[in-house]
Nucleic acid binder design. Structure first.
Length: 896
RNA sequence: GGAGGCAUAGCUCAGCUGGUUCAGAGCAUCUGCCUUACAAGCAGAGGGUCACAGGUUCGAAUCCUGUUGCCUCCA
């Protein structure tokens, strides 16, 4: 041994060393060539984001897939990049400015964007640097950003294209309004949360006229109350100031006489009519519904139907405006008003009762603000029309042209597609692609790429405007309106020239993402793929789970239960963290993250490291220097492991094909730890101070290399380190681009009985408290000595046995059963004959019972008639084996 | 309210078209070992009426029905 290898594996220096080696050799850079392509586009993280555990899981999986493909000879390309995340980033920039004492409203659009770009240059892309620590084998030369000029241009072109195709329209509609972000949101960006709130029962007095009319009418049947007021129930008492009507069900006997009468809104005494519509549920609340068209989607529809006035009492920040009429509330936040008005109503005697109530409120996915339905002019994509034009969007998923893993996600996808709503794509923000719509002085508009083109388009419509008269739409597009183009735009698929990349790498192979963005992103990429490429964007979608803590809570900053991935890597090494994340995270399942898993990963790395120490530390001599029986025994060991390896490799490939990566990794783990380390290395390891024969050593190194190749996609760093050290490598060689092993033919040698004998002897030693250093003599009673004879050397070595005899007298030995045979062990302590007899009798008893159950089956005519013949044969075999076993046991009894 | 899913060892999960590769794996636990690659280790062991109740079948963890509990998505 030339140099000392440390006893524990220390990943830190090794990881940095190899990552920069990989980068400088450009192993991850891919350009089209004659090989089969393999491509993945990264789900672009927010440009200002930092790496969290979800990213770790997601990107580890992508890296495993990419590295496997690369080693399997494909031209693998994993495209990294970031998303401009309009609302999230803008919110961060606004906050940064506020901390510096600058208000967004005091800035011009241009100045604000200058600050935003500065911020992006400073903090953007940190996350990509962090991914390098994880070992991500992205093609960094291809790093893209959704707001870089060429990608933005694609977004604008796509908008114009869709507009020209009649798939985009502008309309005044009720939208989800985020009062914090001061922008509209799509339905997908609204998260519903359960809240405890109160249901207020509020009196609305009837007008004097109405009261008189009721008194004078013939409605005085017994079930009519002659109240002078109606009672409504609401969870949002502040919105009474925006009420436009009260609505009852026309079939509701309690209120029939009130229809057409008028009531007064408390405090402001606005007269509102009592109208009738079957929409009102008679059994909810009081049966009287206040109608507030400006602040509720359903009320808006109801108001439209009945021609009601829309009274909007909220500002874009969610404060009450002049329309609220009551001085006490104007200019105050809606939640403050809710509290105050409840008190005021109560004092003024308008409150009948207040109940505890559980309901759901929509909140903004990005800012967390409670959503207000708000009537605004927005841009929409007509999704029904879009899907009618592209039926493949649903079909491809349903017929597995695009395969979802796990497959049950298909149902969710279908449900969403079947119930699709139009997509609100305009956002009242500045950070993003500005909508290419141009307005003339009187509100007339055209959609055009530039002001010049807009002038031209207006001219065609017979409007003569100068550029200075035109005003571009203030809004930007939804972030997802750029990310849905990602698999196309990262390969410059919208450009006229330079089509090599898109032709070669599109459609991509795999997409790895979280299930919660199936609608936001996955579905829309599929739409974009068929609309502009006429092809699916990817063939497989792997949905990862959500990373939770041990108590199943989501990892979040506020709970403080999310470890910093970089700290974990620093502690345990990237390989350890990757292994820990993947070892128990089947596709679609949430992963319950616990640091002990990462510890397991680190321990595994250490185990491999020590196997490496052993192999490197061996002294080697030519085969000629060794006895024939030892060489033969080593050959057997080699043959056995070779078989094990190939069997396992076939299974691993099967699992990977099914995207069952955690199961594949578990198999590799056991292959290395149990088969290679615990069995194989122990089998061939020379006794202390002696050498190993050359041919076995060579084979042992080959096995080790193959194991490193198979493990490399999962644990890239340690495998590279060992692979480089196992044998001489040329400059520029790397495991990254080494060929992945293929399943080869093998001779299977069953060491089953030998292994069982070893295990049982060890157990015997253990249970009797005998030191492993004490050697035993054993006698094997069997009719199949060939199952043991060739492996005597192994049995002696691994179980510390001094001599093996076959079918000799074994009086006063301890006995153990191995398969259908009986092995007798000479212990240097007194055998308790009574206890031994009892043990054997128990075994016989069990076998008799077992045989009886087999007999029941075999004597069942229907079983024999219906079951597969080989199954019946198996049952017969079982019976024969049991009989043989009983015979052996009886003999042992006799010899005691 | 609608849709889908899950329930197997203390924990996380495998168990394909029903039948000895059917009750399995890893971790955790327990016992004994510092046996010169590794105590981040070695050698072993114990743990489950496969949620409950029916049904189909010669045979059910597996198929069907219902019940209960949990989760996810949508409204």
């Amino acid at each position: 041994m030339t140099k000392e290898i440390s006893k524990t594996y220390s990943p830190q220096s090794i990881e940095d060393k190899w990552y920069s080696y990989w980068l400088s050799n450009k192993y991850f850079h891919a350009t089209p060539d004659e090989r089969e392509p393999y491509s993945i586009v990264i789900p672009p993280p927010n440009v200002t984001g930092v790496l969290h555990m979800g990213h770790m899981l997601n990107n580890t999986i992508q890296d495993v897939l990419t590295r496997r493909a690369r080693m399997q000879g494909k031209n693998a390309c994993w495209v990294p990049g970031t998303d401009h995340a309009s609302i999230a980033t803008e919110a961060k920039v606004v906050q940064m400015l506020r901390e510096r004492g600058i208000k967004k409203s005091d800035l011009s659009r241009e100045d604000f964007l200058k600050y935003a770009w500065e911020w992006k240059e400073k903090y953007g892309g940190i996350i990509l640097e962090q991914l390098k620590k994880l070992g991500a084998s992205c093609d960094w030369d291809r790093t893209r950003f959704t707001m870089e000029p060429s990608l933005s241009e694609a977004v604008i072109d796509v908008f114009i294209d869709l507009y020209n195709k009649g798939l985009i329209y502008r309309e005044l509609r009720m939208v989800n309004w985020d009062p914090l972000g001061k922008t509209a949101l799509s339905d997908e960006e609204v998260i519903f949360k359960d809240v405890n709130s109160k249901l207020y029962y509020i009196k609305y007095h009837l007008t004097e006229n109405s009261k008189n009319e009721i008194r004078n009418s013939n409605h005085s049947t017994s079930n009519i109350q002659h109240s002078t007021f109606v009672v409504i129930a609401t969870t949002r008492p502040e919105t009474i100031l925006a009420d436009a009507a009260i609505c009852v069900n026309p079939n509701d006997e309690r209120f029939k006489h009130l229809i057409g009468k008028k009531a007064l809104v408390p405090f402001i005494n606005r007269e509102i009519e009592i109208i009738a519509d079957e929409y009102v549920a008679m059994d909810f609340g009081t049966g009287c519904l206040k109608v507030t068209p400006a602040h509720d989607k359903n009320d808006y529809d109801l108001g439209k139907k009945h021609g009601l006035e829309v009274i909007d009492i909220l500002t874009e920040e969610g404060f009450l405006n002049e329309n609220a009429q009551d001085e006490r509330y104007i200019g105050k936040d809606r939640f403050a008003v809710r509290k105050q008005i409840a008190i005021d109503l109560e004092e003024a005697g308008f409150i009948v009762k207040i109940e505890e109530y559980k309901n759901q409120v929509g909140t903004s996915e990005r800012t967390g603000a409670v959503i207000e339905p708000r009537l605004t002019l927005q841009w929409w994509v007509d999704m029904k029309k879009f899907l009618a034009k592209n039926p493949e969007v649903l079909d491809a998923v349903m017929n597995d042209e695009i395969k979802f893993h796990p497959a049950n996600m298909k149902n969710t996808y279908k449900h969403w597609i079947d119930n699709i709503k139009d997509w609100c794509i305009s956002r009242q923000l500045w950070w993003g692609q500005q909508i290419p719509a141009w307005y003339g002085p009187n509100g007339e508009f055209v959609v055009a790429k530039t002001a010049e083109e807009a002038v031209e388009k207006f001219r065609i419509l017979n409007f003569e405007f100068r550029i200075s008269e035109l005003k571009q739409d203030e809004d930007v597009l939804d972030t997802w309106f750029s990310s849905w183009l990602w698999p196309i735009s990262v390969f410059d698929g919208f450009k006229e020239e330079g089509k090599e990349d898109i032709k070669y790498f599109y459609p991509t192979n795999d997409l790895v993402t979280a299930p919660e963005i199936m609608f936001f992103w996955v579905a829309r990429m599929i739409m974009a793929g068929y609309e502009w490429m006429g092809q699916k964007p990817f063939s497989n979608v792997y949905y990862t789970g959500i990373v939770r803590d041990k108590q199943r809570r989501k990892m979040s900053k506020s709970l403080g239960n999310s470890p910093d991935p970089l700290d974990l890597i620093a502690h345990y090494g990237a390989d350890g963290v990757r292994m820990g994340m993947l070892i128990c995270s089947p596709a679609g399942n949430d992963i319950l993250f616990d640091e002990s898993q990462v510890e397991q990963g680190r321990n595994f790395a250490n185990k491999i490291w020590n196997a490496f120490r052993l192999v490197k530390g061996l002294t080697i001599k030519p085969d000629a220097d060794f006895a024939a029986d030892l060489l033969a025994s080593n050959k057997i060991s080699e043959q056995w492991f070779n078989a094990r390896f190939n069997i396992a490799l076939a299974e691993i490939e099967e699992k990977c094909k099914d995207y069952k990566l955690s199961e594949a990794l578990m198999m590799i783990y056991k292959l290395i730890w149990d088969d290679y380390c615990a069995w194989y290395l122990e089998m061939i390891k020379p006794v202390y101070g002696e050498a190993l024969n050359q041919s076995t050593y060579d084979q042992t190194v080959v096995f080790f290399e193959k194991l490193m190749l198979v493990l490399h996609p999962f644990m890239p760093f340690i495998t590279e380190e060992i692979w480089q050290e196992l044998t001489e490598r040329k400059v520029g060689e790397s495991i990254c681009i080494a060929a992945y092993p293929n399943v080869e033919t093998y001779n299977y040698t069953s060491l089953q009985n030998a292994f069982e004998t070893i295990a049982k002897i060890r157990d015997l030693r253990n249970s009797k408290g005998i030191s492993p250093k004490e050697a035993f003599e054993i006698v094997i009673k069997t009719t199949q000595a060939e199952l043991y004879e060739p492996y005597q050397f192994l049995i002696k070595k691994l179980a510390n046995v001094s001599s093996i005899l076959f079918n000799e007298d074994a009086h006063n030995y301890a006995s153990i059963s191995v398969s259908t045979d009986q092995v007798f062990v000479k212990l240097n302590i007194e055998i308790d004959a009574v206890a031994e007899t009892e043990k054997i009798n128990k075994e016989i008893e069990y076998l008799i019972g077992f045989m009886a159950s087999v007999d029941v089956k075999l004597s069942n005519e229907k079983f024999v008639a219906n079951a597969k013949p080989e199954l019946v044969e198996k049952e017969r075999q079982k019976k024969d084996d049991a009989l043989a076993k009983i015979e052996v046991l009886k003999q042992s009894l006799a010899s005691l």
